[in-house]
Design a protein around this nucleic acid. Structure first.
Lengths: 178, 178
DNA sequence: GTCTATACGAAGATAGAC
DNA sequence: GTCTATCTTCGTATAGAC
């Protein structure tokens, strides 16, 4: 991937995580990425396509990480590995987590399809582990609860109490989830 | 409150929940509310002030409900009442929940202060109950986990699987949280 | 208190030089 | 492949009639 393209992706995600996509202008993105506005359109075509690329590439990586982290595990250990890995991914890329949270429940957006895939894929990954660990529970709703608890706690940590250790956060979540 | 003001608030919240605030124009709000654009500015001054009003009024109501629902309760029953009440509030006003989720972790916004108060007040309300129910846990992080689990599960329910009963959702959350 | 008409700036997108 | 300059549309906000 070219350096220009990379810089644009990073700048766009950072700005959108903080202000939202619509409030982030291509001018702002270009300035922060230290490229000209024309380069943004040359590399991505439209503003929408730029954010679709951020979303789909980010989610593909996340799903791979979740699968690797839980491969071969079952029951409670699988759930613990999953929560731990998700938390580390959020720490690794908080901007992507913020962006995903903000867009997760919207339906009237250009990248509606991309975001739907994100949600379904991630919840589905978690639901498989839940179904295996607790066969008597509703997999989809339980997966949503675990995902929500980890995502919100992780972001509260990184955005408002970054001085805490990840182990502290992981413990608090796993104590709350059974 | 005047009918015009009320219609504007409802229309603005519905549109912002679906598309985000910045992507929602005052033109769109006025059309949906069946009033003239000028009336929006007459009643609220600026677009920002309109959304600040939505946020602060909505959160004041939410906090009152949470307090009433848990008054006099302690320990696990208090947590159950809290989750149940929060879930009902989300069902009652899903648009406000979507709006709050989308804005929750942003810092570069006009209504940054309002949203900070929202988050702190709600998490604080929950943290008090948590501290009482589980004195050995970290109140703030545990509160975040419970809030996140309920909020995300509630919205997954209403947005993507509305055919389910609220009791089913409540049970799934309370089974997951201990 | 609500409307219509309009001023003015911002933002997405394109054209063409280098 | 990246830049600058420009076009055009859209959106916030205001002024003034009713």
């Amino acid at each position: 991937m070219s350096a220009t393209r990379e810089q644009i992706l990073i700048a766009a995600l950072a700005l959108a995580a903080d202000q939202g996509v619509a409030a982030t202008s291509v001018d702002d993105i270009a300035t922060r990425a230290r490229v000209a506005k024309g380069s943004v359109f040359y590399n991505f075509g439209t503003k929408s396509a730029l954010f679709e690329a951020i979303l789909s590439e980010g989610v593909a990586r996340l799903n791979n990480h979740l699968r690797d982290a839980t491969a071969g595990l079952h029951g409670r250990p699988a759930v613990e590995a999953l929560v731990g890995e998700l938390l580390e991914r959020i720490r690794e890329n908080p901007d992507l987590a913020k962006f995903a949270v903000a867009e997760m429940f919207r339906t009237g957006r250009d990248w509606q399809d991309s975001i739907r895939q994100v949600r379904e894929q991630v919840i589905e990954s978690i639901a498989e582990i839940v179904a295996d660990a607790w066969p008597d529970r509703d997999p989809a709703l339980t997966a949503a609860a675990i995902f929500g608890a980890t995502l919100v706690t992780g972001l509260v940590w990184l955005v408002f109490e970054p001085e805490r250790e990840i182990e502290q956060v992981r413990t608090a979540i796993l104590q709350t989830i059974v």
